[in-house]
Computed example of a mutant assay.
Amino acid sequence: MPRLSPISRPPAPAGGYEPCPIDPDYDRSYILDDSGVPVRVYDYGVHARWASFEGKGWQIRDMLGEFGVEVWTYFSGWASLRNDDPPVFRTVVKGGGLDKTFHSLTWSEAEDKHRRVIEKVRKTIPTVAERKVSN
């Protein structure tokens, strides 16, 4: 279960970044602090830079080639204004006849969900070679 490494953030330009404000009544965007707690941000640039650099370290991606399945867990960084639901970590499973998304509220829950999904795939999904033999 390799956690992706964050990319080094280049230095900010000399004059800083131009503000890209988010209307609080339009969107709810989040980043994670160093301990993995969601923090609401009010600037698209802050959100985009975090997702492009530090946010990469809050992702796990496993390619289970023998099963034709990919499992990817990441922080969504967005919450709807339609309700008060918090932002979530998503675990997405694609391939091998699967197309499912699971939600977790914390990084530790998301890591556990990722691990359990991989275990379930390995126990229940036939390998690509097994599927070819049965056809």
Rank of each mutant, 00 (worst) to 15 (best):
V46M: 07
D84N: 14
K100E: 13
I22C: 06
G16M: 05
K120C: 08
E119L: 10
K100C: 10
E119P: 00
N83Q: 02
L4R: 12
L98S: 09
V92D: 10
L64V: 14
H114K: 10
V71K: 06
P19T: 01
S104A: 15
L98H: 14
I118P: 06
A51N: 07
M63N: 11
C20E: 13
D84M: 07
L4N: 09
S80L: 03
H103A: 13
D27E: 15
R40A: 11
P10Q: 04
R61N: 07
F89G: 05
K100N: 14
F89L: 05
C20K: 12
S134M: 11
G95D: 04
I22T: 08
S80F: 04
G57S: 07
E66I: 00
T73Y: 09
H47G: 06
K56N: 10
L64I: 15
R49Q: 08
S108I: 05
P21N: 04
L4H: 03
Y30L: 05
C20A: 12
F89P: 09
K113M: 15
D85M: 09
S5R: 14
M63K: 11
I125R: 11
R40T: 02
S104Q: 13
R49C: 00
T73G: 11
E70G: 08
A14E: 13
K56M: 12
G16C: 05
A14Q: 09
G36P: 05
A12H: 04
A129W: 08
Y30W: 12
D27A: 09
F102H: 15
K123R: 15
E66V: 01
I31G: 03
H114P: 07
P86S: 11
E66R: 13
G96V: 04
G96I: 01
D25V: 00
E54V: 01
T127L: 08
K132D: 11
F75G: 08
P24Q: 06
G57H: 06
P19K: 03
C20F: 03
P13S: 05
K120R: 15
T101P: 02
R28H: 11
T106E: 09
E109N: 13
V128L: 12
C20I: 00
R90F: 10
V92G: 00
P126N: 04
R3N: 05
A48Q: 10
I7E: 12
R90K: 14
N83P: 02
M63G: 02
N83H: 13
